[in-house]
Nucleic acid binder design. Structure first.
Lengths: 217, 217
DNA sequence: TTAAAAAAAAGGTTTTTTCCTGTTTATGTG
DNA sequence: CACATAAACAGGAAAAAACCTTTTTTTTAA
């Protein structure tokens, strides 16, 4: 174990209160010190590029305005491979977790964990390169099941657009116009989705989209 | 100003990481010290009743399992009038803010505020008995507008039940059966709501219900 | 280039939703 | 009681959604 070293951490979260509090917590850990905060991915980019402060670990919130956790993780993975990303989120759904891990996050923590777990996670992250909680490991295993994974939650671009537009007051005809497709094609998407998701009507689709975070209210 | 006194604070939030971090932050304020945490209203009740630790202020999260912020605030107002409730939430919608204030909260803070604001809010709370941010003041003023307040957001029992059932995959016929009413009556509710809420279809109703927290997903 | 697979589109039908207007029934009030 | 008012209910009809099957077009890969 590396006991004597001190690692730096950056916090990227639009909730200032949480970020500010988290800083106090992290500074109370032996081996870690907060280098800076950022309110979103864009602010983080500026700090990294202009001020040249490079932390060892970035605690990255997923739900942020302007530039969210997914985009940020993608950019970080491309430009700062050496920084370890620890995703922090309220969402414990499989889709979100997997997406974040695919974008390069080395760990995924729910915001309702015990503070000490954060210490453990940070330490494991710098020592071993990754940290996976039971929930995440379970999700990873579950994701090997081709069922929900491949056929249900992987939507094609057009399908996703349709789902999002269906979560509005537009009629299918209007949706067809916007997407430059025949109403019959839209009906095809609808029918296929209803079958795959085992839902009965458009309300079911809205509820599904919300549960899986495909739309924001 | 009361500079020398030290006030005690309790944190009620199911997100341990946030609660734990917040404790560090609050303990770093001059006049405040965290007395204990609770994961929800029920746990808070037990601590208050059995351990007889009575804080000056309670930081109360709204979204919690088991016993949420509304219930907890109601209970506290009834049994511990002397404790000042400061509601903490992500939701900045009018409905939620007003509901919380009606249940007895003396202040309402969004979780994305700057940490120093929390200090100010806590100090004002013990000094003057309440703290209202600009957003909350604005909401209070806005709530005087009889429009959205009285006619839109005040639903009759049956209407609310209908709205909630309409946010499911049931047909109106099935909803009518469950509510022991004629399908034509249900159609009457629907028509009336569409007109009042200025919505075009059932999806609009679902979105509305979600925005106003009339249903949980 | 050609066969297979995927995507887009169509035809036709039933069910449900939405809309408009009017009637009956319960409920409370002077 | 008579009257006003709100809630429950109804008839009829157009629009949209939902369902099932088949065909055309486009894309992909062999």
């Amino acid at each position: 174990m590396s006991q004597k070293e001190e690692y730096t951490v950056a916090i990227v979260d639009d909730h200032s209160l949480f970020a500010g509090s988290l800083e106090k917590l992290i500074n109370s850990f032996d081996n870690f010190r907060v280098l800076f905060h950022a309110k979103n991915g864009q602010e983080l980019q500026q700090i990294l590029l202009k001020e040249n402060k490079i932390p060892d670990v970035i605690l990255l919130d997923i739900n942020m305005p302007v530039m969210d956790g997914f985009e940020t993780a993608e950019w970080l993975t491309k430009n700062y491979r050496q920084i370890k990303i620890l995703a922090l989120s309220m969402e414990d759904d499989e889709h979100t977790i997997l997406k974040m891990l695919r974008k390069g996050a080395k760990g995924y923590l729910l915001k309702d964990i015990h503070p000490e777990i954060l210490n453990v996670a940070l330490q494991e992250l710098v020592d071993r390169g990754y940290y996976h909680s039971d929930k995440v490991s379970e999700t990873l295993l579950h994701s090997l099941n081709p069922d929900e994974n491949g056929s249900i939650l992987d939507f094609k671009e057009n399908e996703l657009t349709f789902i999002q537009l269906a979560c509005s007051e537009m009629t299918y005809k209007e949706i067809a116009e916007i997407m430059n497709l025949s109403p019959k094609t839209i009906d095809g998407y609808r029918q296929d989705l209803f079958r795959r998701l085992k839902i009965k009507n458009r309300v079911g689709l809205v509820i599904f989209a919300l549960k899986k975070n495909l739309i924001k209210i």
